[in-house]
C-alpha cells in the first residue's frame, strides 16, 4: 500500500472528470505501473457530485482509496474539494478549480453556497494550487478544457514523466481536440 500513489478527483457531473481520470490512468500505464481506477457512473451528466479515483504502483489491489491516504486531490469545483478533503493524506497536494457550480438546492433557496469557500479551501489544504481553470481554458478557446488545465497543474505533484502524460493525452482525446488539450495541459503545468 505504501508505494501506491492514489489520486482522488471530484467535481460535478458534466465537468469532464472521467477524461481527467482516464488521462492520469493512461499516463501511469505508460510509465509501466499497475493501475486501477474507479468512478461512479449513472448520474454523471445530471449535475450530481461525482468522484473518480486513480491508483498506481508496483501492484495495486483496491480500486478504492482509503480515507487519509490520497497522494493528491484534484477538484473541478470549489466546494466539492471540501467534501472529499478527508481522503487526502497530511501534506498532500490539492489542485482546486476556483469555479463555483451552484446546485439547484441553492437556486431554489433550500440551502446556501458558502461565501467564504476560497478561505475554507485555503485553510483545509496547506499545500494548495487554487486555479481559475475556466478562465485559462477560455483564453485557449474552449472552457471545456478546464479539466486538462488542472491536470497539468496536478502533474507537477506526481512522479510521472512528461512523455507519459503526452502519450496519455493523445490516446484519450479525439484528434481534433489534441492541440487544445496539449496547450491546456502546458498552461496548467506552467502555473
Amino acid at each position: 500500500m505504501s508505494d501506491t500513489t492514489s489520486v482522488i478527483m471530484v467535481g460535478v457531473g458534466g465537468q469532464g472528470i472521467l477524461l481527467a481520470s482516464e488521462v492520469l490512468a493512461r499516463a501511469a500505464m505508460q510509465a509501466g505501473f499497475d493501475v486501477k481506477t474507479n468512478e461512479v457512473h449513472g448520474m454523471a451528466q445530471r449535475g450530481g457530485s461525482v468522484m473518480a479515483q486513480v491508483r498506481y504502483g508496483e501492484e495495486v489491489h483496491s480500486p478504492l482509496i482509503l480515507e487519509g491516504t490520497a497522494t493528491a486531490l484534484l477538484s473541478l469545483e470549489s466546494i466539492e474539494s471540501l467534501r472529499a478533503a478527508h481522503y487526502l493524506k497530511d501534506g498532500g497536494l490539492a489542485v482546486v478549480n476556483t469555479q463555483r457550480v451552484i446546485p439547484v438546492t441553492v437556486s431554489s433557496g433550500a440551502a446556501k453556497y458558502p461565501e467564504d469557500d476560497a478561505e475554507r479551501v485555503k485553510k483545509v489544504f496547506p499545500k494548495l494550487k487554487a486555479i481559475d481553470a475556466v478562465a485559462i481554458a477560455g483564453e485557449l478557446g474552449n472552457i471545456r478544457a478546464a479539466n486538462v488545465v488542472l491536470l497539468g497543474a496536478l502533474s507537477l505533484g506526481l512522479d510521472l514523466e512528461m512523455e507519459h502524460w503526452a502519450a496519455a493525452l493523445d490516446g484519450a482525446v479525439k484528434p481534433q481536440f489534441r492541440e487544445l488539450n496539449q496547450k491546456a495541459f502546458e498552461a496548467g503545468r506552467n502555473l
Partner: peptide, 16 residues
Amino acid sequence: PSPVPEAADLPGRPPV
C-alpha cells in the same frame, strides 16, 4: 479521518 468541519454545512448536490 472523517469529513472536515468546513464541509459540514455545504449545500447538497443531488442529481437533477
